[in-house]
Design a protein around this nucleic acid. Structure first.
Length: 759
DNA sequence: ATTAGTGGTGTTTTT
DNA sequence: CACCACTAAT
C-alpha cells in the first residue's frame, strides 16, 4: 500500500521520491515540482520506516524554503518534526556550533555578525593597524576574507603571490584574531568553523555521520566549495545524499557558488542515477517557450528542456516607457486592471534587478494608495534603531563584544567622543582587554579619584546637568551594569523593553522629528521577540543529549542575524509583492512584471567584465521569466534616474533572445508625460507611447517619426550600429546629436551627414 | 566634544 | 542620490 501523498506524482518524480538508499542527483527544472519531490521524499523515507526523523538532515538556502519544507513535511506526516535538522547551511552550522561551542573554541554566547557588522569590525581593525583605507578599501577586505573562508582557507593557507595579497592575508589573520577575542563570528565563519570542527574532531564527526543517514539538499547548484566539503563530512558509507538542483538557475556564482559541485557530487558519492524533471506544472506555453529560447543562448549547460501540457496562453506583454516614472505609473495601472479582473494582489509580483529600482515603483504605488510589500532592501533587523537596541542586548550578554560597545557607547549622545573612544582603545590594547574591560578600569579609577578628592564632582554646568541623565564613560559603565542586573532572569520581551527604555533610545527617538517610525520599529522588535519565544516553545531544538541549549537572548540575536528579512512591517495583508529577481527564486505568481529591462541594468553593466557574467545574468532572467504562471510583462524605460543623473539606456539584449512571435507590444492606457523628460530639438516626443526602440520590431512603427530626433531615441548607424541619442545641440544644418552606441561608446554626429536612422 | 556642513565617492545580486 | 569622511564653527 502506497501512502496517499504519492498519488499525482509523475513517473520521474515518483522514481526520485522512492529511490532506494543511494545518493542521487535530481535535475529539476523551474516549476517541475522540486519542493514537492524533496518533501515527499522525506515523508516517504520516514513513513516507510526506513528513517527516523532524527536521521534526517535537509538543507536549504533561504529560511523561507526551510520553513516551507518543514510545513509540508508535517502536513504529510503526523510526526513531531523535533529532532530533524531542517534549515539553511548557516542555520544548521550555528546549531552545531551552539551545541559544541567548547570543542569549536568559541564562547558559549558567541554573537553572529551580519554583513554590516562585519564591515564595521573591519574598519575598526584597519584603523588600529594604521592601514591605509585608500589602499585597502574595507569592502575589498571584506570580500577577500569572505572569499577565502568560502574556499575553506584560513589566513596562513592563503596563496600569496604579491605584496598586496600578503598584506591582505595579514589583515585577514588580524581580523580572525580580533573576532575570536570579541567572541563574534561572521557568516562564512559559521560554515568554516563548523567544517573544521567536523574535520578535527573525529568523535563528533562519526556521531553525526552515524546519525544523518539521509541528507536532502535543495538548490544544490547554489552550494559553494566549502558547503560542499561540509556536506562531505557526513558521508559515512551507506549514507545517502539526495541533491536537487537546476544548473540553469544558478545565480549565486558571485558569492562562490559553483555548479561544478554537481559533477563532483556524482563522482564523490557514486551517484548512479541522475533524474531529470522536465515537465513544468507552473507556466503557460508561451512563457515557457520564451524561457527555453532565452536560456538556450547559454553555452555552459547540462542541458534540459522544459515542457508543459498546458495551453500556450497569452503572449508576453512588452511595454516601453519614456522614463522610469512612466514605467512605474504603467505598472500601477496594469496592476489595478489585473486586480479588477480578480487577480489577488499577492499573486502579482514586480521584479527588478537591483534594490535601488524599487524606490520609484514604491513611490508610484504609495501615490496610488495600493498596498505593497517590499522584500529585501533595508531589512527589519538592519535598521539603525534595531541595530542599536540589539547592540545594547549584545553588550549586556557579552561584555567582550567591542563592536556592540562602539556602536552604543555614545548613542544616544552622552559626551563620549572620538577622542575618548580612542583613549579607551589604546588602554584596551595596552592591557590586552576588551573595550568594556578598559571602560570598567577607567570608571573605577575615576570613582577612586573622586573619593580621594573628597567627593568634589567639579560642579558641572547647570544646563548639561539636567539636560541628560549621565555623561562620560563611568555613567555608561554604570548604565550597562544596571541593565545587566535589572534584566537577569527577565523574559526576553521584557528585557528588550527595559533596555529600550533605560538606554534612552526611546527618549531619543521621541525627541526626534522623524522618529515616529523608529519608535514603532522598536515596539515591533519587542513584538518580534514575543513571537520568537512563542514559536521556540512550540518547537524546541531537541538536541542530542549532553549539549547546551542557548538561552533566549542568544538564540534571538542569532535569529536576528540569520533571518534579517523575515520580519517585515505589514506582513500578512494582501499586498503587491516587490522584490529583486534573486529573492524571487523559488516563488511563483499568477502575474509577473520584470522591470528595467535595459542594457546596463539587466544585464547589469558590472556583469559584463566578469567571467561568465553574462551567462549568470541570463540565468537570472531565466529565473525571472519562469516565476509567472499566466501573465508576464516585460518593461523598460528609455531614460532612468540613476545615481542622481538621468541615463539613457537601450533595450536589454534579452529581448533579442526571445522569439518575436511570443511578445506583444502594448501601450499604456493613458499617457503620462513626466516633467523630468526634456525634449531637445523637437516637440514630437508626446506622440503615443509607441516609438519603438526595441530591436525586436524593425523600424516599421517609426514612419511618422522620420527625420525627427529626440534625446532618448534609439538609432542605427551604418558603421557604428545601434545606439541611443543622449544629447543634442544646434539646429538646422549645424545640428549635432550625441549618440551612445552599444559598441563604440559616445560619439557626436552631424545630422546632415551622418546616415542615422531610427532603430 | 559635538555638530553642521561640505565635498568626494561609489553603487548588483544574499545567507 | 546617498553615504562617508573630513573640516570648520559652536
Amino acid at each position: 500500500m502506497s501512502p496517499g501523498f504519492l498519488s499525482g506524482l509523475n513517473e520521474q518524480q515518483l522514481e526520485a521520491v522512492t529511490l532506494p538508499r543511494q545518493s542521487a542527483l535530481v535535475l529539476a527544472g523551474a516549476g517541475s515540482g522540486k519542493t514537492r519531490v524533496l518533501t515527499t521524499r522525506a515523508a516517504w523515507l520516514i513513513h516507510t520506516g526506513q528513517l527516523s526523523p532524527m536521521g534526517l538532515m535537509a538543507v536549504t538556502f533561504t529560511n523561507k524554503a526551510a520553513k516551507e519544507m518543514l510545513t509540508r513535511i508535517s502536513a504529510m506526516l503526523p510526526i513531531n518534526t523535533r529532532g530533524m535538522w531542517v534549515g539553511t547551511f548557516h542555520g544548521l552550522c550555528n546549531r552545531m556550533l551552539r551545541a559544541h561551542f567548547r570543542e569549536a573554541g568559541l564562547p558559549q554566547l558567541f554573537q553572529i555578525l551580519d554583513t554590516q557588522d562585519q564591515l564595521s569590525v573591519i574598519k575598526r581593525l584597519l584603523k588600529s593597524l594604521n592601514a591605509d583605507e585608500e589602499r585597502f578599501p574595507p569592502r575589498q577586505v571584506q570580500w577577500f576574507i569572505a572569499g577565502s573562508k568560502e574556499e575553506g582557507l584560513r589566513a596562513p593557507e592563503v596563496d600569496v603571490h604579491d605584496e598586496f595579497t600578503r598584506r591582505m592575508r595579514d589583515i585577514y589573520a588580524a581580523y580572525d584574531e580580533q573576532c575570536q577575542r570579541e567572541g563574534v563570528v561572521d557568516f562564512a565563519e559559521l560554515l568554516l568553523r563548523s567544517y573544521e570542527l567536523l574535520s578535527r574532531n573525529e568523535a563528533l564527526r562519526s556521531h553525526y555521520g552515524a546519525r544523518f543517514e539521509h541528507i536532502l539538499v535543495d538548490e544544490f547548484q547554489d552550494t559553494n566549495r566549502l558547503q560542499y566539503r561540509w556536506l562531505k563530512r557526513f558521508a559515512e558509507p551507506g549514507n545517502a545524499i539526495f541533491a536537487v538542483g537546476d544548473d540553469d538557475q544558478s545565480i549565486y556564482a558571485f558569492r562562490g557558488a559553483s555548479a561544478a559541485n554537481m559533477q563532483d557530487l556524482q563522482r564523490d558519492f557514486a551517484v548512479e542515477r541522475v533524474i531529470r524533471l522536465e515537465q513544468n506544472y507552473r507556466s503557460h506555453g508561451h512563457i515557457l517557450d520564451a524561457a527555453n529560447a532565452l536560456i538556450s543562448h547559454n553555452r555552459k549547460r547540462l542541458g534540459k528542456n522544459l515542457w508543459t501540457s498546458d495551453a500556450k496562453g497569452e503572449p508576453l506583454r512588452v511595454l516601453e516607457a519614456l522614463t522610469d516614472l512612466d514605467e512605474a505609473a504603467f505598472i500601477v495601472d496594469e496592476v489595478r486592471a489585473l486586480r479588477g479582473d480578480g487577480v489577488a494582489l499577492d499573486e502579482i509580483a514586480v521584479l527588478y534587478r537591483s534594490n535601488a529600482q524599487s524606490r520609484v515603483i514604491e513611490h508610484a504605488l504609495f501615490k496610488a494608495g495600493m498596498p505593497y510589500r517590499v522584500y529585501g532592501g533595508l531589512r527589519f533587523f538592519e535598521r539603525q534603531e534595531i541595530k542599536h537596541a540589539l547592540a545594547y542586548l549584545r553588550l549586556v550578554a557579552n561584555p567582550g563584544d567591542d563592536g556592540a560597545l562602539v556602536r552604543i557607547i555614545n548613542f544616544p549622545a552622552r559626551g563620549i567622543g572620538a577622542r575618548s573612544l580612542e583613549q579607551l582603545q589604546d588602554a584596551a590594547r595596552e592591557r590586552g582587554t576588551s573595550l568594556w574591560g578598559a571602560a570598567l578600569l577607567k570608571s573605577e579609577g575615576r570613582r577612586q579619584k573622586a573619593e580621594e578628592n573628597g567627593g568634589d564632582t567639579a560642579s558641572p554646568s547647570p544646563i548639561t546637568q539636567h539636560a541628560s541623565p549621565g555623561k562620560g564613560i563611568p555613567s555608561f559603565v554604570a548604565l550597562i551594569e544596571r541593565m545587566r542586573e535589572a534584566t537577569s532572569g527577565l523574559p526576553l520581551p521584557e528585557t528588550i523593553e527595559h533596555i529600550v527604555e533605560a538606554s534612552g533610545l526611546r527618549a531619543h527617538y521621541r525627541a526626534e522629528k522623524e522618529g515616529a517610525d523608529r519608535l514603532e520599529n522598536l515596539s515591533e522588535l519587542i513584538n518580534a521577540a514575543t513571537i520568537f519565544i512563542a514559536e521556540r516553545d512550540v518547537q524546541p531544538a531537541g538536541e542530542a543529549p549532553g549539549t547546551d541549549e542557548p538561552d533566549e537572548l542568544t538564540a534571538f540575536l542569532a535569529h536576528a542575524a540569520l533571518e534579517a528579512g523575515e520580519h517585515q512591517a505589514q506582513a500578512g495583508a494582501e499586498a503587491l509583492q516587490l522584490m529583486t529577481v534573486h529573492s524571487a527564486k523559488g516563488l511563483e505568481f499568477h502575474s509577473v512584471f520584470i522591470s528595467g529591462l535595459e542594457e546596463g541594468l539587466f544585464p547589469h553593466e558590472n556583469s559584463l567584465t566578469e567571467a561568465d557574467g553574462i551567462e549568470e545574468e541570463r540565468r537570472l532572467m531565466y529565473v525571472a521569466l519562469t516565476r509567472a504562471r499566466r501573465r508576464l510583462y516585460l518593461s523598460l524605460a528609455q531614460s532612468r534616474m540613476l545615481h542622481g543623473q538621468t541615463r539613457y539606456n537601450i533595450a536589454s539584449r534579452f529581448f533579442q533572445e526571445i522569439p518575436d512571435g511570443l511578445m506583444r507590444r502594448i501601450s499604456p492606457a493613458f499617457h503620462v508625460q513626466s516633467s523630468r523628460f526634456n525634449v531637445s530639438g523637437s516637440a514630437s516626443a508626446t506622440e503615443g507611447g509607441g516609438v519603438s526602440t526595441l530591436n525586436t520590431e524593425p523600424g516599421t512603427l517609426n514612419a511618422r517619426n522620420a527625420g525627427q530626433w529626440r534625446v532618448g531615441q534609439n538609432v542605427v548607424h551604418p558603421t557604428f550600429g545601434t545606439g541611443v541619442i543622449v544629447n543634442s545641440e544646434g539646429r538646422g544644418p549645424e545640428a549635432r546629436v550625441q549618440v551612445n552606441f552599444r559598441s563604440g561608446g559616445l560619439k557626436w554626429l552631424m545630422l546632415e551627414y551622418a546616415r542615422l536612422a531610427p532603430a
